[in-house]
Nucleic acid binder design. Structure first.
Lengths: 151, 151
DNA sequence: TCGACATACTTTGATATCGAAATGATAGCA
DNA sequence: TGCTATCATTTCGATATCAAAGTATGTCGA
């Protein structure tokens, strides 16, 4: 991850860009995790509650797809949320292989109360960039992410 | 993490930027991890070997600082690398609290052989962006990362 | 010198994550 | 109807990660 590598110009530029993208992303995550820790939630738990709040009941496989996580990981985090009474699991469709996860009232209150503050925090984090800069960052990351995922 | 949130414009823009930055970063990491898994190394192990290769022997605390990881995490990963004979630990300075980690010959060969391919992979990942775009991405992420870390 | 504080590392307990194997359910087809 | 392949989820083993507690070492002031 260091730039002290005698590669081609393209390699040095790419390695250098990689480091800053990763550092920015890790700084964002670390900052959000610290904030969530105070509320008794991990980032993974928040991610699942967030999807359930904004998209509604959804099966675990789709949850894994949206969060870019393995199915096993989702099973484990959902189990934790279920134990705490924040989400409910049901196998009620015609296809009994699917498990539908939904927010309980307790879960809805928890994430509903937290999200506005989360949004303010994120806006504060990105306030270092102007609006056009944020849009440009999004454009570049989308292009990069799509290409990497497709490869 | 969804954009279906009725917040202010600033909040929506920031949340939207956050998602794409995280997705791009996670796609990059996932892709690199898959490549490394074939070589029998995890991303964390590679990160430590990389620092040792390009910076030289260094104590664990500094390693943790450079990798943005907790001290406990570094202890654990270094222990694994030590067991595999890729790095060596020494308490040889005047201050016996510091543990200096360095590459063994075996470790140097391992990371030295892998790094050029890693550099090519990263260059390929970023080839979706032009050189100026990569530089701009770096500028934006540096600005963002610095601000978030400082907060 | 001695005690109090500081620093570097290690250990511990909890959660997250992956990939692979195991389980349970469904669908296609003869 | 059965057999088989596929699919969604769960379980398992390994590693990573953090925070907090614990250990060893070092520093500084009285």
């Amino acid at each position: 991850m260091s730039t002290r590598y005698r590669g081609t110009q393209d390699e040095v530029r790419a390695l250098s860009a990689l480091i800053t993208v990763m550092r920015a992303s890790e700084a964002l995550v670390a900052s959000l995790q610290r904030e969530l820790a105070g509320k008794g939630l991990t980032a993974s738990q928040f991610g699942i509650l967030d999807v359930l709040l904004h998209i509604g009941p959804i099966c675990q496989g789709e949850l894994a797809g949206k969060l870019l996580r393995s199915g096993g990981s989702v099973t484990s985090v959902v189990s934790g949320l279920e134990k705490r009474g924040l989400v409910a699991r049901r196998r009620d469709g015609s296809d009994k292989r699917y498990v539908t996860v939904s927010l309980t009232e307790k879960g809805r209150k928890a994430i509903g109360g937290l999200f506005p503050e989360h949004a303010r925090t994120v806006a504060r984090q990105f306030a270092a960039l102007t609006a056009p800069e944020q849009d440009e960052l999004r454009r570049l990351c989308r292009k990069l992410g799509r290409s990497v995922s497709a490869a």
